[in-house]
Every structure is written in structure tokens, then in C-alpha cells.
Design a protein around this nucleic acid. Sequence first.
DNA 1: GTAAGCCTTCACGCCGACGTCAAGGCAAGC
DNA 2: GCTTGCCTTGACGTCGGCGTGAAGGCTTAC
Lengths: 128, 128
Amino acid sequence: MRIGELAARAGTTTRALRYYEARGLLPARRDELGHRTYDENDVKLLRQIRTLQDFGFDLEETRPFVECLRAGHPEGDSCPASVAVYRRKLAELDALIGELQAVRATIAVRLASTGSEPPLCELGGREL
Amino acid sequence: MRIGELAARAGTTTRALRYYEARGLLPARRDELGHRTYDENDVKLLRQIRTLQDFGFDLEETRPFVECLRAGHPEGDSCPASVAVYRRKLAELDALIGELQAVRATIAVRLASTGSEPPLCELGGREL
DNA sequence: GTAAGCCTTCACGCCGACGTCAAGGCAAGC
DNA sequence: GCTTGCCTTGACGTCGGCGTGAAGGCTTAC
């Protein structure tokens, strides 16, 4: 299939696909006209990229997963490099969530001290 | 005081201060040489900006707080506009934290299903 | 023939919050 | 007089992940 069809099937754009190729993430074969050609496996690779992107992974972080799939593994996260990225991401998420909760708590305290009434009866008690 | 001293006292840079002025956030008086001049109150305004920035507020969101201080209130969050920003920020934080926790949970499950051993004995059980 | 609809390669635009030169002015110390 | 150190304005660079437009080529449908 060509770039437009692949983009449509993965819910993205041709521009994004060319960008991935430029980054070396999703190279394409070419037909005799110079048009990019993709197969079913590329759909799988692209879906992996998009899923991880939705999770907040940046492009470089998706690379190990894509290479894992391309190496023949049925899942992109079956390889050590992918697992390492998972672990790093979990640590990052924990740190980030912790910071955000701290900020949330601080703002909640400041908000309460302004003496302005809360929306209704509840105080919206969150953890931390 | 001049721009360099103010920057140093607030732990920021002259470039940032000129940027704030260009955005109309922290205008400066000028001396006879055309140099920017600031007073103690500007230190307070700038500290308010930096604090909120550290909390993840973007510049425009700090504006109500700064204007509140400039209006003579002892605290930047004593004004309705500031309180409104607090409320919006709390909602944003709750939404964001929720998404991040969902992603964290998903990744944790995927990681567990890779069969790779966790770092040590604990599974790092978080909420959700 | 020509318009539509794919595709190609540049290459600049965008967002936020500045960083980083460049070119110059003014004042103080040696 | 010359250097050092502060300041000025202006303008381009950064980062990520593309969006958007230009200028053109090929094929298919009318």
C-alpha cells in the first residue's frame, strides 16, 4: 500500500510518516515511480509507534519497540531494550506524578486560605 | 536596582526579565541612561512569577497574580481572577494526574507480562 | 484536454520561554 | 587611553512533532 492508505489505516498523516522515515524510524520501500510502499507489517509497526506516542513516549523512545517488532518478535515489548524503556518510563511517571500531586496539594492549601468558597459542599479531597 | 541585580536576587536571568517586560508582565522604569530600574516591589512581583512558573503555570497564567499584587494586595492570590486560575489549575492537574496514573498502570501491566524480573523483591505497588 | 487525486521533494511556520550572539553606549578603575 | 563590566536593542537559534504551502510528476476519469 502507499503512504496515504497507511496513514489512514493508522489514524495519522502522510506528513507524520515522512517524518518517521526521515528519523529512520519507519523506512519505506519504493515502487518504480519513487512512491513509498508499505506492507501489513508496517501497519503493525506504525500502530506500535502511535500507541506509545499516546502514552507520552517521545519518538526516540519508541525505537526499541519498533526494532523489536522488526526483529520478528510478536510484541514490541519482548526485548530487553523495550523493557528498559518501560522501566525508565515508570520511574519518570512516578516522579512526575509525585511532583504534580505536591503542586496540587500546595495550590489546594493556598486556595483554601484565600477564603473563597469551594464550588459546593465537598472539598474535593484527593490523596496526599 | 538594575536588571542584573534583580535577576540575581530572584534567581533568574536578565533575558527573562526583558522577556517579561516585552510581554507586559513586568514593566520597568528607566533611569536617565535608559537603563531599566526596579524597586523592592518588583522583587516581590518577580518572585510570584517564578514561584508559579515552578508550579507549571505558564506566563499568562501568572498575570492575574502579578496584577493583584500590583493592585496593592499583600498576596497575589487574594483576587478573584487569581482564585479562578487556581481552580482551573487544580482541575487540569487532576485530569493530568489521572491520565498519567492510567498510563502508569497500563505500562506496569505490560511490563509484568514481559516476564522480566522486577528490580528486587517488591513490585512497587502504587495506587490505582 | 483537463481536472482530480494520488504522490514527490524542499523548506518555512508553529508553540513557549527564553539562550545566544552581535554591535554598540556609558562609567569606573588602572 | 584602555580594559572591564554593566547596560541597550535587535534578531536569529533551540526543542519536538509535525502543519502547511509551493512546485512539480504520474495516472485515471470524464
